[in-house]
Design a protein around this nucleic acid. Structure first.
Lengths: 248, 248
DNA sequence: CGTGGCTTTGAGGGAGGTCAAGCGCCGTGG
DNA sequence: CCACGGCGCTTGACCTCCCTCAAAGCCACG
């Protein structure tokens, strides 16, 4: 949320998915191969499935706030979330966006380390803390998967650091587009059209810039025929150019 | 290294510590309680100790480069290291400094994700990949410790992101000082005098600023009586002020 | 049709980058 | 012993990129 007011509102409780009260079907889950569930043995997957609860949140709902007791782990099955922290002075830094297949872990200390809310309507697989930790204690392979996931997050955080520390506004925006495109390609067929569900304010708070700079930079790239701005995303017309900028 | 020339030089092989060829003594290790070794059972610690080799590097030596096959994990026992990545265009981003007690893990994919070199002379406990992974496979508790370590690194990376994305030069420098002070306090008694073994260039590449800005900002803080610049560090004279800046 | 939220665009200013010069320290060699 | 050169650090002058402030456009929704 851009306005801090809604951030401090108490989060709504998660609720079961209306369209799917009966449980999950991991075998046919489309995020199966990219999520924490990948590379699990059949029995492990079955055990995980048995404790999974489908839940959903409407756009702009808050799942939890930084410091909340972590009652559950989640796998995103559809929609987009933003993870962020708020400073005392109301500045917000988005530390990441979650797309289908991404995972929200229960930290070692049992608290969430960031706030999370839904950008679009989202559906998730919810794993209650008690059952999940019991399962992890039982299956070292699942712990190994958690470790793997943490390392991937670390890698992504370092990429973020590189972007914020070394790149210009233009390079950051290009990097953001390419990055988002590649992550979408994990579950959707690769395409030059990148859907952008988040607002300019979200992008700005992710890249450490202002909305005006985001807007101006996108306009400039469009004027230079490198991209085309669409209602809910952009089309990368000059792929090589944008990729070069992103890698700079 | 500030100059890219030395970065691409082949790394020297690690060598046994001259002063301690006979092995390690974990029970009396001063970083024992803050490192990966903390919270291990006696038999686990003994197993870890049995595969540990003390090694050392002189200042400015490179341990490994990004992409190198990860032949070993390490625990730092003394000295300071920098971890960094280099862009194509020679820009360098330092992603972290390693102090005594810090750990270098073997990534899941078996490659190092960043370059590492010694800022001052360093000593480390080296754990060969084969023996270490065998031990991890055998002791789920050690895997859990690795997971914990990865989460701590993640936390520190997010703090870094906050700093780069939201803070001014002055705030970043204050944050750097407080952060360094607190990390030193893990092994040394807490003090207002913060040793700074790294160069201005290192600090700049860590904070996403230039050496000139680092220098100017420190000078300004000193002129304002908030700190005192010492030969190899700074003394934080106005602790409250610097802490307020750091938290901003 | 009016209102409010999000976005775009413009004008102006400031924080930090760039370029350049100078200082202090230290190791080397005359 | 001092002269010299190199390196890291500091300081100054200037400039640029991005932020700030402001206004207007666009679109959804009541």
């Amino acid at each position: 949320m851009a306005d801090p007011g809604s951030v401090i509102a108490f989060p709504p409780p998660s609720r079961p998915c209306a369209h799917d009260g009966a449980g999950t079907d991991c075998e046919h889950c489309k995020v199966r191969l990219v999520s924490i569930c990948a590379a699990l043995a059949h029995d492990e997957l079955a055990a995980l499935e048995s404790i999974a609860q489908p839940v959903c949140f409407a756009a702009r709902e808050t799942l939890f706030l930084e410091g909340d007791a972590a009652n559950a782990a989640y796998t995103v099955t559809s929609g987009t979330l933003r993870l962020y922290r708020i400073f005392h002075n109301c500045r917000r830094q988005i530390v990441g966006f979650l797309l289908p297949g991404d995972f929200i872990a229960i930290g070692v200390d049992g608290k969430y380390r960031y706030c999370a809310d839904a950008i679009s309507a989202v559906t998730l697989c919810r794993f209650g803390k008690r059952e999940f930790t019991a399962l992890v204690d039982d299956k070292p392979n699942l712990l190994y998967r958690l470790y793997d996931t943490a390392e991937q997050e670390l890698e992504s955080a370092r990429e973020h650091i590189m972007a914020l520390g070394q790149r210009s506004a233009r390079e950051r925006v290009a990097w953001f587009l390419i990055h988002l495109r590649d992550r979408c390609a994990r579950v959707d067929p690769a395409s030059d059209t990148v859907p952008i569900p988040m607002s300019r304010q979200d992008i700005a708070d992710y890249l450490g810039l202002t909305i005006e700079t985001i807007s101006r930079t996108l306009s400039k790239l469009a004027r230079d025929k490198a991209i085309e701005i669409l209602p809910n995303g952009v089309k990368v017309t000059d792929v090589a150019r944008i990729e070069r900028l992103a890698a700079a």
